[in-house]
Amino acid sequence: MRAPDLSQLHALVSVVSEGSFDSAATQLHITPSAVSQRIKALETSVGTVLVHRSKPARITEAGMPYLRLAQQIGTLVAELTPGAPASVPIAVNGDSLNTWVLPAVAQLSHRMEFDIKREDQDHSAELLRQGVVVAAVTTSADAVQGCSVTRLGVMKYRPMCSPEFRDTWFRDGPSGDALSRAPMIVFDRSDDLQHRYLEQWSVTRRAGPTHFVPSSADFAEAVRLGMGWAVLPRQQIDRMRTGVDVVDLAPGTGVDVTLYWQQWTLKTAALAELASVIAVAAASSLD
């Protein structure tokens, strides 16, 4: 097998990050046919399929080492090119992004190019394994192969609803039965935080409706508007008027989520600086 061609590796990164051959072509300023030819030539060279031709396009298991290699080469090239911004794809859960991660990475945005993938904290490590991102906020303390792991702190979630919602659904106070029957708000179908909280009340099945609101800011707003109850991170609750906008359903209860920072062990100034600002932000924002 020949050593991979750099233009082919670049095309591989673009197809996976952009999600299609057409979008990759736009990013690379070439034709979709040229992108397809580069990917096909790389696949022929290595003797296997590297990209699922799906919508969106996805890396195959066999393609993951090549995607990681391509990302690493791109990072090193940017490091050695004066004036070239480092391209830094990272995976962050919506609550962290909305509360403390975005202000941290904003400090570096004038000299780094961020591609932030919003991914549930329980699944973000998979994007590291695939090579889609170079770093991630995750709940996994087990380092992905080729990565280092650092504990960031604990994100505390508390059960919240609007005062009117409480008066309607929890007149006699919180209980497993009332929680199971009251409308509940969930981020998306991979969000299990509300169900983890219900387990503390020995609730395994729900009778009430579930609303899906896949945006961290809109999620909190849906709680404030009385659409349902949900567990919200302390950092988001602090932005609201507790007792007016929202109320704590059961003070002293909640869900604790320990977060970790995983990143490639590839040593570059960009990754080191990013890890530093993330650590500082986590120290001041997490418990």
Rank of each mutant, 00 (worst) to 15 (best):
A182I: 09
P65Y: 02
T138G: 03
V88A: 05
S202N: 15
S54T: 07
A24H: 01
R224D: 08
Q235D: 12
A70S: 10
E126S: 13
I90K: 03
M227N: 12
G19W: 04
K117A: 15
S7E: 09
G94C: 14
A178H: 15
V49Y: 11
P233Y: 00
E18Y: 14
S215E: 13
R234T: 09
I278Q: 03
Q262Y: 04
V186T: 12
S14D: 07
L42W: 10
S124D: 10
V247P: 00
A70W: 02
T48Q: 11
E273C: 06
P4K: 03
P183K: 01
M64Q: 14
I90N: 02
L127I: 13
P32E: 04
Q263W: 00
Q236D: 12
G83L: 09
T75F: 12
C161N: 15
N93D: 15
Y157M: 14
G47I: 09
S285A: 09
K40L: 03
R111G: 10
L69Q: 14
V92I: 10
T258N: 10
A281N: 01
V246C: 07
E79Y: 01
H110M: 11
L152D: 04
T258R: 09
L193Q: 13
L128I: 15
K40Y: 03
V46H: 01
A106L: 12
W201P: 05
W264V: 07
L259D: 02
G153Y: 01
T253Y: 08
K55R: 14
R241V: 13
V134L: 11
A25Q: 02
D192W: 04
G131E: 00
L179E: 01
L193M: 14
R239A: 07
S17P: 08
D167T: 13
A141S: 08
V15P: 05
A104M: 06
D191M: 06
M155W: 04
T75S: 12
A230V: 01
G208D: 13
